[in-house]
Amino acid sequence: MTTLLRSYCLAIEFFVRIIGRSVAWFVPILSLVVAFEVFARYVLNSPTIWAYDLSLFLFAYIAALGGAYAQQKNAHINVDIFYLKVSERTRRFFNMLTYLLAMYFMFVLIKVGLDQLEQTIKFNYRRQSEWAPPMHHFWVMIITAGGLMMLQLSAQWVSDCYGLITGNDLISQPESDE
């Protein structure tokens, strides 16, 4: 049982980390796209029609898909004044409550994302710009981001639940950083 839970958590962590680190490569690309637009407008005197939307898409992909990885690294901001004062067991219990709330939010996000995806495909929704790139991939991305966050939260929830019951850590050492 412990092994099963542990593999579940490790598998999710692995998956979330891969995606989180992959989208990080969009950061330099995003900067280049914006810099190129400045170049095209100022030097070539012919602004592109695609840089505006492309940079927003890249920004959204980094921001949304990186969320689960940030959660894994405990990078999301919390107000830890009271949280740090309580025992580790209590903290696990707090986590289980707040992760439930967060998972509910992700559930709603995914549900809405699916609705939107359906509409987007049905009506072939695009951005309102002249370039008019399609929107369907964006909603697929949002659903994925919500799903990843949900999985990551569930792994941490399982791990805290295990810790609360047995008093031991499910995974002995958190994965080292870089």
């Binding site: 009506f123 929704y125 695009r126 309102q128 710009s129 008019a132 929107m135």
Partner: peptide, 8 residues
């Protein structure tokens, strides 16, 4: 409507 050109 120009804001919704991608939708309609």
């Amino acid at each position: 409507q120009p804001m919704h050109a991608g939708e309609m």
